[in-house]
Design a protein around this nucleic acid. Structure first.
Lengths: 370, 370
DNA sequence: CTTCTTAAGCTCGGATGTGGAGCATATTCT
DNA sequence: AGAATATGCTCCACATCCGAGCTTAAGAAG
């Protein structure tokens, strides 16, 4: 049951710096109920009031609703192929602290231990204010919090070690979480249905419907890279043939250019896409065409308002927009061609997964605060 | 804001014949609040109580909560390529009356007029108890309720003429609505995420997530038949190439068999699929393989608990289960192969779209009843 | 500098819905 | 017939919320 108190906290979280009067109007309560609500939530150390920027117009000035200085916090974590990072995030999405470190040659369990130590350090500083954690990882997370990241050669890494305490624990795929971030704080704000796609080693993403990320029955939705939009003769590491991911990522570029599979396919792909030599440009164009064609298929099936591209997708969109768009339009159903959903670059870039981890953990936490 | 009253009505709708005590436990209220709730909703003529079947165990017997004999009703309508039908449906999904008629050679506007007349007749019988209408059509419905059904050669047929009054008005694609019905009353009951696919002339369907049908930004989601899983050299009537729908429906079978495109592709396909001659059986196997391969792609991307097949999909599943399943398994990501989501025939069959129209209209109505 | 206008916040009373304790009721079991 | 069990009802307390009327804090007008 959604109470007014939860609604108010959600509004403050979604629109940091909202004024008290605006927030009351947004949730549709009168001034009397607002007095009671703000007083109660302030007393519970969930929010505080600060002088608002002067509006310049007549009337009694209102205040800005801000996170309480002793209010709850979320630890947001991301692990990428290069580094790990932990942020302490308050209501509204602002970060109070950051710890980060390169992965180096560490194993998965060593990285989890390092992240756990960082979280423990932050807990000595912030104490029980940290009510939960959100973790973005470049792989799949099972129900029992075991991480598999084929890209990093990690198998069965136990994420539970990061956060032994009770509270909120959200862990998910980086592309899925980036989709959430893009919908709440990025290029897809306001979309009723948004599709976010993230190309790194392979391709992932998510559909966000009315602010809710569709995570699927096992939490494994969004593996759009394994839809058979690609070349049916190419075998994917997943075991299937024709996976779309194998047609758009670094491995695809290497195959098109006759190179060995690169050790770091993401940096490799960035170099290829940035190159203006004819051979790399042609490979980039081919990958961009495959990307556009697949996006069209997903748009036909899922009917989003817009599509956002993250990771290497952003690079491809910048380097070969014409190839993406031509293949996109050609693949759309007739009635969509007149006014196709726009394909936009992600605005959060590499911070997307971390921001999404914070977002999903905060969403979960908000339902538990009264 | 979801009130207890709405929750109770939803429980009664979802589980017709539920006992009062069970319903109270399901929504988590005590016996005191239950007395107040049932009294209030009974007084509002939304529900009534009937003697429940004896439980056989000790304790004071409870009653069954049933729709009120003067309670609200929904008119559920479906238009197929063969006939139209209007049911009057009460809370819980039971039909009180049915009117149906073959389409014959009527135009779209004539059919809409006939359906409108049937609804008007039912309104003289049931009066203002009929609070709204749900309509399932074999085509796409725009925001302003204009229907395009290329299969029937209907363009810009105005559905608003069926229901001139205020109230609930829900209109949608038959495959999308069948997905809703399958999730609420059919083979996908209890699934957290269900994918329903319906092959008729082309292929459509929907994802149902936690009981909510994902309708997309324009209400056009579920056009999975226009994802490019098919032969890239085949042009689809939609203007794109390689659409999956062109690889699995009656037009695909005719192409494989070297036949002209049939006038009624659904009856044609039923005949081909039912045939045991070698050529039709081979064509059926090819279509079944294309169906299984595409299902695998969708399962990889959308992560449903299970997949239900309606329309000709049911026939294909009965005629060539091995071909569907082999292609399905081959296309799944490795980690899914051990325990793949089952592919099940629809249990509602041809009644799916009508049942879904009733379901969606009732869902909409329930949010408006206090 | 005073008064007017405007927007916002506060106080209070009443309506509503909910939760729990204790009692009443209807059935099966012994 | 009495015990055991499950359910329903009455009553009271509490939290929430809405609206009316009043108060407060700013800019605008003179």
């Amino acid at each position: 049951m959604t109470t007014r108190a939860t609604e108010l906290l959600r509004v403050i979280h979604a629109r940091p710096g909202v004024t008290r009067a605006d927030a009351a109007r947004l949730i549709g309560v009168g001034t009397g109920a607002t007095t009671e609500l703000v007083g109660r939530l302030g007393h519970a150390e969930l929010l505080a009031e600060a002088p608002a920027a002067p509006s310049g117009s007549r009337g009694r000035p209102t205040t800005a609703l801000i996170p309480h200085p002793r209010g709850p916090l979320i630890a947001a974590t991301s692990i990428t192929h290069e580094q790990w990072r932990v942020d302490v995030v308050e209501l509204g999405g602002a970060a109070l602290a950051t710890i980060r470190e390169d992965l180096g040659d560490r194993t998965g369990d060593e990285v989890v231990a390092a992240v756990g130590a960082a979280v423990a350090r932050l807990r000595t500083e912030y104490g029980d204010r940290i009510r939960g954690i959100g973790i973005a990882v470049p792989g799949t997370v099972s129900r029992d919090l075991m991480l598999d990241a084929s890209n990093l050669n990690w198998r069965n890494v136990d994420l539970a070690a990061i956060w032994p305490k009770a509270g909120i624990f959200v862990a998910g795929n980086d592309a899925t979480l980036a989709a959430s971030a893009e919908s709440h704080r990025g290029a897809a704000v306001g979309a009723s249905v948004a599709l976010h796609l993230r190309v790194e080693a392979g391709l992932g993403g998510a559909v966000v419907d009315g602010g809710r990320v569709l995570v699927g029955a096992l939490g494994a939705a969004g593996e759009f890279g394994h839809m058979p939009f690609g070349d049916p003769t190419v075998e994917c590491p997943c075991g299937a043939y024709g996976c779309w991911g194998t047609a758009v990522d670094g491995s695809a570029l290497a195959r098109l250019l006759g190179h060995h599979q690169p050790r770091d396919p993401i940096s490799y792909a960035r170099r290829v896409i940035a190159s203006t030599d004819p051979a790399p440009a042609a490979a980039t164009a081919t990958a961009a065409t495959a990307l556009g064609r697949g996006i069209a298929g997903l748009v036909n099936g899922l009917d989003p308002d817009l599509v956002t591209l993250g990771g290497l997708g952003t690079d491809l969109l910048a380097a070969a927009p014409a190839h993406i768009n031509q293949a996109y339009r050609a693949g759309l159903m007739g009635f969509r061609r007149e006014n196709p959903p726009p394909i936009l670059p992600s605005t959060l870039g590499d911070d997307g997964p971390l921001a999404g981890a914070a977002e999903e953990a905060w969403t979960a936490l908000l339902t538990t605060l009264v």
